[in-house]
Design a binder for these strands. Structure first.
Lengths: 161, 161
DNA sequence: TGCAAAATCACCCGAAAGAATGACGACATC
DNA sequence: GATGTCGTCATTCTTTCGGGTGATTTTGCA
């Protein structure tokens, strides 16, 4: 992706330079500006379309890889596997590695269940502000900016069912 | 599709005409040709990329049914699950039963990945308001009041990976 | 070709969420 | 006793979400 932009920039620069150069070489016909504009426009439009197609292709590919990775992680986490009745054991190693406390994980699981901060506060008999604090710390440790993202990360890391 | 190309042509013509016109109006600074070239290049590159993305998106949408059919066939052949390489096939029955459209499900998956409405809007080249509308409808159909809840429900119903 | 469904966008408003701080007590550990 | 961690709570402020409503455009299908 970054490479594409780079290539794009380089090619663009070269193109413009070439146009500049050729202007002093070839016959300077009338309406040269608009001709050049058109030429540049067509070239870049084509290139842009190509780039667009390529980007989407890349994106699909990369997202597919991500899915595979996730699946692998899941496999590692549940090697013995008891799909139906397992109460789910959170990945303690990950938890400790990230410094996530038990309370934070507890709040996280409730967040993952779709509860609001207020509902969590009620359920745990604490104030909403406390829930927010725990959330903020957990999000920080997970590198998440939103609760949905935190849930996603938590599942990836095996912290949440 | 044909319309896109038409728009492209019209916009291109207008742009070049505008450039032509402005040249005789504004101060003709030195290196004006290369500046114009750069300007045109940037504009058309952007437009080209946008067009390319849009075209691919359309094509994805229209060809999605075909892809799904293939996936369904695969599911029938391997009903005992093949966890490693399946790209995940959303539960179409549930989706239809709830009246959730393809677009809504698409937004839902992005919500599940932890993206904000704005990020989703950027990624799908639509306005944030549109994303909100899709979200609201999807939440309504899922009986969810929050996005975390919607994600939870979506996973329960086999709509999301 | 015309119609119904989908998709798109806008605007408003209130509620929820999150960021940034600061603070305080309990508890363990050294 | 000093230190550190954890859980708790508050306040302020900004951003994001979600509900509600209406409108237009696009699309798919009959």
């Amino acid at each position: 992706m970054r490479r594409h932009v780079l290539i794009f920039g380089v090619v663009g620069g070269l193109l413009i330079a070439t146009l500049q150069y050729t202007e002093y070489r070839f016959v300077v016909i009338e309406h040269s500006v608009e001709l050049y504009s058109a030429l540049v426009a067509i070239l870049f439009a084509t290139f842009g379309i190509w780039l667009g197609l390529r980007i989407t292709r890349r994106r699909e590919t990369s997202s597919r890889e991500t899915i595979r990775e996730t699946v692998v992680v899941r496999e590692v986490l549940v090697p013995a596997e008891a799909p139906a009745l397992e109460p789910f054991a959170p990945n303690k190693a990950q938890q400790q590695a990230l410094g996530i406390t038990a309370r934070e994980l507890e709040i996280l699981t409730l967040v993952a269940r779709g509860l609001s901060n207020r509902e969590i506060a009620t359920q745990l008999f604490v104030s909403e502000n406390t829930v927010k604090t725990h959330c903020a710390r957990a999000f920080d440790k997970l590198g998440a900016a939103r609760r949905t993202q935190a849930v996603q990360r938590g599942k990836e890391l095996g912290l949440l069912p």
